[in-house]
Amino acid sequence: MTRIEFNHVFKAFGGGATRIQAVDGVSFSAEGGEVVGVLGPNGAGKTTIIRMLLDVFRPDAGEIRVDGALNGNRDDGFRRRVAYLPEERGLYQKRKLNDVIEYIGALRGMTRAETRERAAPLLKRFDLVDYAKKKVVTLSKGMSQKLQILLSVLHDPDVLIFDEPFSGLDPVNVRLVRQLVLEHRDRGKLVCLCTHMMAEVEALCDRVMMMHRGARVLYGPLDEIRRAHTDYQVSVDWEAQPEGLACVARVEKSDKLKNVFLKEGKSISDFMREMATAGRSVRKLSEGLRSIEDVFVSVVGGPVEAASEDVQ
């Protein structure tokens, strides 16, 4: 299984007054069999991290290791094992799907026969068989999106780097891509997911690294991060009435839930017992755990935006 490490990596763009520290001493690791979310607001340095991993840019300082090998990301062998789906996607509009697939297959070191063999089930799965002989320009945005995902996994990569893979997809295809991500993870592949769709992060990611202004601000298993940023113990549905119970210190209302803060020494069992004794019904009750979106907003201090990050 592939293992990637970033150790104290720095990268800046521009000079003088316009100098921007795009990546500021970031360290993290990720390995096969997990989905790692790389999160952050616009300009946080996510795309620069990816471009350095793909050796499009070289870091100013720090080291990048692949399977322990320093600068292993510069090897041709690593390139053949990587799939990259950038946020700003594009295709050769005037070429036929089959031609594009053949070309990408050739760039991945596959023969024409291998490419066809690999592409056939994927075309079927992504419902693109009927378009194989048509020009890319004839595809809808969603289909074009699917074609690009197809192209990225054509060579059965070990490392998948998906930047906003769900944008432009309908719910059915979101589920399709979700399945694809999980299948690859279950097969021991490493999936790096850059997305602003926090629901997908919660559904798919095992670990997350959150960046802000080039620096790593959060890093670790998803649930641990959520737990670490949660100061209440119980969440109940909006219609429940936990207010006034002896074990309850205070109640805060969020969008759909009430977050209950218990008094010191009180547990969830004490809370449930008191609710039952008081005859107050609860339709939904869960352990207190902030959503990753709440964590994101609290850490970054701004709304979640979906936009591209260009080279400075």
């Binding site: 793909l54 050796d55 499009v56 041709d76 390139r79 990587v82 990259y84 789906l85 950038p86 700003e88 996607r89 594009g90 295709l91 050769y92 509009q93 990408i104 760039l107 991945r108 690009q148 192209l151 990225s152 780097i161």
Partner: peptide
């Protein structure tokens, strides 16, 4: 303009 270049750069050396 097509933004294909970034994908290509992930596959081959510049």
């Amino acid at each position: 303009e097509n933004k294909v270049i970034e994908v290509l750069l992930s596959m081959v050396r510049v």
